[in-house]
């Protein structure tokens, strides 16, 4: 599959991972989705748009290898080829880290467009990891998107912010501004879902959230211990040991590429009686 795809011209699809609210799992999802796409053989690059608060490099485990960054490329201080970090686990995956020292104003529309256009010539998927908020950085991350993954927790402020972001996607993007263009294809990725709490009525369920946001569902990622472990190790969740979360991300990635995959809502396995008796506190 990998070699087949590499012969074809790149798809050059720009996917923004956004949410409005911080801490809902944008970077975790950007890492997992880009690694999932690369694992399927798609030539994939993931870009960190959170200028000044670089974190994608840590999540991807390449923080020691950053030399040049996205801003250096925009400002002409380095060429794109030099700033791209090739993932050591997947040869189809590259990371474009952001600057830790500049501020978000260093992102210009022209600069971002130039870099994206260059990446489109080589990559099937260009995954843009947006900063939190709806300010300049987030706007730059979403402006050139073909598709959007709106990461949402089943929690009131997150759903509200996602709604706001969906509004911006349908008005403040290049596709929205270009007459006759298809709108940005936006889908919700529900993260930190806890089936037990849904069952007891403590947490909004998937239908509740979709009814409010009225956009298609890309996937449901269960609350999982695998997420923290993967982040500790600098490993995208789908490249770490199998877990309910990694399976959910793999399904979401297949849906993103157009496959029909039945929605399964898997819970993290609760510690059984044995585990509860012998040790584990949580």
């Amino acid at each position: 599959m990998t070699s087949d795809l590499k012969q074809e011209p790149p798809l050059g699809r720009v996917v923004v991972i956004t949410s409005g609210k911080g801490g809902v799992g944008k970077t975790t999802s950007a890492a997992a989705i880009s690694a999932g796409l690369a694992k399927q053989g798609y030539r994939t690059v993931v870009i960190d748009f959170d200028v000044g608060l670089r974190n994608l490099d840590m999540t991807m485990g390449c923080e020691r290898r950053v030399v040049f960054d996205f801003i250096n490329v925009i400002q002409g201080d380095a060429r794109l080829k030099q700033a791209l970090i090739k993932d050591k686990r997947l040869d189809t995956l590259s990371i474009l880290p952001t600057s830790q020292t500049r501020d978000k104003d260093a992102l210009t529309k022209e600069g971002v467009e130039k870099v994206l256009d260059e990446l489109k010539k080589e990559f099937d998927y260009i995954v843009c990891d947006s900063p939190a908020g709806i300010e300049h950085g987030a706007q730059m991350a979403m402006y050139f998107a073909d598709e959007a993954v709106v990461v949402t927790n089943p929690e009131v402020s997150s759903v509200r912010d996602s709604d706001r972001v969906l509004g911006l996607l349908s008005s403040q993007t290049k596709r929205a501004e270009s007459e006759g263009a298809e709108p940005v294809k936006a889908q919700v990725l529900l993260t930190r879902h806890d089936q037990t709490r849904v069952d007891t009525g403590e947490m909004m369920n998937v239908e509740d959230v979709l009814e409010i946001l009225a956009v298609p569902l890309l996937g449901v990622i269960p609350e999982s211990q695998a997420i923290l472990r993967a982040s500790n190790l600098g490993m995208p969740v789908v490249l770490d040991q199998p877990s309910a979360a990694s399976r959910a991300y793999e399904d979401a990635v297949r849906r993103l590429t157009g496959d029909e995959v039945e929605m399964r809502i898997e819970g993290e396995r609760r510690p059984g009686l044995f585990n509860r008796l012998f040790g584990r506190a949580s």
Binding site: V67, A78, T101
Partner: peptide, 14 residues
């Protein structure tokens, strides 16, 4: 902050 190590690398390269 502000004058990070990454900043001297482009100049060094030039």
């Amino acid at each position: 902050s502000g004058s990070g190590e990454a900043d001297y690398l482009p100049k060094l390269q030039r």
